[in-house]
């Protein structure tokens, strides 16, 4: 596959935290994503863009083995977090998910209080420190503290969609992950709430590596440092097999794409 080239950017000073080598993903007999090789850099925001059904979410969900939860899902090739091969049998997905957190497309707070939502992760991990302070600092990091500090014991369902999504981000931060995977985190939100999430992602970059799937190319260009463009394998278009077409610094992808298909997509000619 000529398209699946390694990024040409220099990697000397930048630490790689997640990577895949010839990774393919299957649901039962169907190939969802084929032969992806890419490296994701620490403390950067990497976005996955591409037409729907090209396996962006599948690839994203492989980084914390959330695909395991779907019956019939399987993997070939390697996926690495730091230097651990995630799909080796000795790796416990529970431990990985604690280090690689995730935020979903639709806000999914638990039907509990705001406080309990944040405290859930720390509690199952038997957090030994001061829970109140942890909850406060996570909500601060997620830029939600000022809005909810007086109603920590109210149901999370009473919050607006944007607030719920920030609560879910705060909830993910409470288990001290290194990486945050975000699966179209703003697609269910209005433009103002979307901007707040994007600002927040920029702030979080200092401490975390963020990988975000998005449909929204403006969003990808606004927030991300690197962009991976995925699409359907054109040789076998009926099978809808996702492939990585181009992966590079965001500015290059959006101003000077090497691949014709990437150019067509970002200029809106297809997708």
């Amino acid at each position: 596959m000529e398209a699946n080239i390694l990024p040409s950017v220099k990697t000397q000073n930048e630490e790689i935290i997640l990577s895949t080598k010839n990774a393919s993903f299957f649901y039962h007999d169907k190939t969802a994503v084929k032969n992806v090789t890419l490296n994701i850099k620490k403390n950067k925001i990497t976005s996955f863009i591409g037409p729907s059904g090209c396996g962006k979410s599948t690839l994203l969900r492989s980084f914390n083995r959330m695909n395991d939860l779907i019956p019939g899902a399987s993997v070939e090739g390697d996926v690495y977090y730091k230097d651990q091969n995630l799909y080796k049998s000795s790796i416990d997905p529970v431990k990985i998910r604690q280090q690689v957190g995730m935020v979903f497309q639709k806000p999914n707070p638990f039907p509990k209080s705001i406080y309990e939502n944040i405290a859930f992760g720390p509690k199952i991990n038997q957090f030994q420190g001061n829970m109140d302070e942890l909850v406060e600092s996570c909500l601060m990091k997620a830029a939600l503290w000022d809005e909810v500090k007086d109603k920590l014991n109210e149901s999370a369902y009473a919050l607006s969609g944007g607030q719920q999504q920030r609560l879910c981000i705060a909830r993910a931060l409470a288990v001290f992950p290194d990486v945050l995977l975000m699966d179209e985190p703003a697609s269910a939100l209005d433009p103002i709430a979307t901007l707040r999430i994007e600002d927040l992602m920029n702030d979080l970059k200092e401490e975390y590596t963020i990988v975000v799937v998005t449909h929204n190319m403006q969003q990808a260009s606004r927030v991300s440092d690197y962009t991976a463009f995925m699409s359907i394998d054109r040789d076998r278009i009926d099978e809808r097999i996702g492939v990585l077409v181009e992966y590079d610094e965001t500015i290059k992808i959006f101003t000077n794409p090497k691949n014709k298909e990437t150019e067509d997509y970002i200029t809106g000619r297809f997708g």
Binding site: N64, M66, L69, V94, K95, R97, Q98, G101, M102, F104, K106, N108, P109, F110, P111, F120, G121, I124, N125, C168, R171, A172, A174, V175
Partner: peptide
């Protein structure tokens, strides 16, 4: 989505 949210926090 609630189950996924909990699994993503490292719940068994």
């Amino acid at each position: 989505s609630l189950r996924e949210g909990a699994y993503a926090l490292g719940a068994t």
